[in-house]
Design a protein around this nucleic acid. Structure first.
Lengths: 336, 336
DNA sequence: CTGAAAGCGCTTACAG
DNA sequence: CTGAAAGCGCTTACAG
């Protein structure tokens, strides 16, 4: 492999000048810069990450913590993150923070502390105080995406407003008896997000004088199968709801399938609205609140880069956009 | 942050001994080892990745190349990979190789050449000869998962056998007119996999004297929506097939939905079999050929670690297991 | 089994 | 704008 020495020799300059020319830091004459670039290109020289990091203290790498790798939402955020980082020449080192306590500890006590990264992005993770503390001790920028975290810079959608928007859409269509498929408390460990969506949803119902009954809430995991089971329970109610708000699109799709299974037509007999902007939503004609997950990843990348560069200027806006997308699964209730 | 110097001082040994004790390389007395460990623990010392890499040439990091981050299959392989690597103290640096030619070039010409990783795993990527060459030049182990690659060590299922197994299952039930939802040529850029599945499938049909008609093949992308559209086309045929083999579970699920849409019962009017072992398969009662994607990731992790360690002994078996899982979407055809 | 010291391949004050 | 040289924080022959 070719080193900086060789590039310097070929370009007829010192290694210091090569370093400056290639990194863009410090003054280099246009002529020298051109010769260095040409030499580097022809030799296929790429700066060694380890040597550069050790000497400069910058790694050009960011650590990303995710709770799940096999769910569409996280994969989509991750792909936005990856492309946002790559565009700026940054690498992405991935840490799956799973339920296993020992492995989880290892991530915070060891993996993340190897000084391999210039910044950390935690996606939809509910961090313990000690974990937050470990991250902050790193002395590098830390950004949490999704879910409020009082101790960290946070990039998040207003989940309360999402819940409210969903409720208001259904109320506006004339629905009064509206069920909710949300997270079971056990599944809320990773997020506080579903709880907020539920609260926003219920606040809107209350404001409108619509019922917020315990039996209209069906807890579930965040999968299609879970959503289907939860929805089936609500649809079996003697006085079944005319509309359902699911806290994710996958659960909403499950609800649609459950409705079909129960012989109900969507939206004639049952309206369904979800949250996320899942790619499958279009196929099902699902009305949803799109939170643009890919863009969330891109925004997170931009935010961590801004925080990492010394010339960090504009504090990135902390609020992420969402958008009601009305398709074919919501309509006025049958009687109206 | 605490460095090796401080640990050495506290343990009353040289930094050389600290390094040896912590890394497990070289001889260290039990007593010294214990003192070093205690000192390191109490100080919360973690070896600097950059310094260690630069000095030793080992990074304890592996690079993973994936074509998609937002698809279940890749996310699942990735999670197996992540846990397999983490268990051995390795980091995982992720490179999304997307369709954009310039970005793709950058991955092979720059990102992967920073000497940040000890090995590379390429998942279901159809690599150009030049790309393969770039990877090989790195002088580190490279493993391809999925899809045969004559130039690389490959970990792969026998996709031809998968196609044959699917066909034989349907033939065994008495089906003769069997449709196939597979990859459109355009979508085969990333894989050669679907083509092999199709060939195995067709070979079995031919062996059994069943028809292999061009109009029984519906090309598609690998999504539920795509599978549904492709299946709908086959089901609209005047002489429609009694069974469908989809090259992925997501397409198979799409086919099930399309059948319902067309007023056909599964499996009474149409049998459907997929490939993957997708988590949604259980919900739909889908008969499938499970290729254990999570285990593929774990196997790939084990293989790259084995190849990286100098004491690499057992060459890992190159063939990945698959398994026919019969559930409720396949049955004998109506007439039989 | 242990330590002193060279060296890994860069970056960056410092002096010019 | 440029170069000589120190230094980043480890690891590993080498000598004992």
């Amino acid at each position: 492999v070719v080193g900086i020495e060789e590039v310097a020799r070929r370009a007829g300059v010192s290694t210091a000048t090569v370093s400056r020319a290639l990194s863009g830091r410090g003054q280099v004459s246009a002529a020298a810069r051109a010769r260095v670039q040409a030499a580097a290109d022809s030799l296929g020289y790429v700066v060694s990450a380890a040597a550069s990091s050790l000497a400069s203290g910058r790694t050009r790498n960011v650590g990303v913590l995710v709770p799940f790798l096999d769910r569409w939402f996280f994969g989509t955020v991750l792909s936005g993150l990856s492309s946002g980082l790559m565009r700026h020449g940054y690498d992405l080192t991935l840490y799956a923070v799973n339920a296993d306590a020992a492995e989880r500890r290892a991530v915070f006590e060891t993996f993340v502390r190897r000084r391999r990264v210039d910044g950390v992005i935690a996606i939809s993770l509910k961090l313990g105080d000690d974990e937050t503390e470990r991250l902050l001790e790193l002395g590098i920028p830390v950004i949490a995406v999704g879910g409020p975290n009082p101790h960290l810079t946070t990039l998040t959608v207003d989940d309360h407003a999402i819940g409210r928007t969903a409720a208001e859409h259904l109320l506006g269509l004339g629905h009064r008896r509206i069920g909710h498929v949300g997270a079971a408390p056990e599944y809320d460990v990773e997020f506080r997000i579903p709880t907020q969506r539920r609260q926003g949803f219920e606040a809107a119902l209350t404001d409108a004088g619509a019922p917020v009954a315990a039996d209209l809430f069906a807890p579930s995991d965040f999968t299609i199968a879970g959503g289907a089971h939860a929805a089936a329970r609500l649809l079996a109610l003697p006085d079944r709801p005319t509309a359902l708000f699911a806290a994710s699109d996958e659960m909403a799709i499950g609800a649609i399938l459950a409705a079909r299974e129960a012989g109900l037509r969507v939206p004639e007999d049952l309206s369904v609205i979800g949250v996320d902007g899942h790619e499958l939503g279009e196929f099902f004609g699902l009305t949803t609140i799109d939170q643009h997950p890919r863009r969330q990843g891109e925004r997170a990348a931009a935010a961590i880069l801004a925080a990492s560069e010394p010339d960090a200027s504009a504090e990135p806006a902390a609020e992420l956009p969402f958008e009601l997308v009305v398709r074919a699964t919501t309509a006025p209730p049958a009687g109206s």
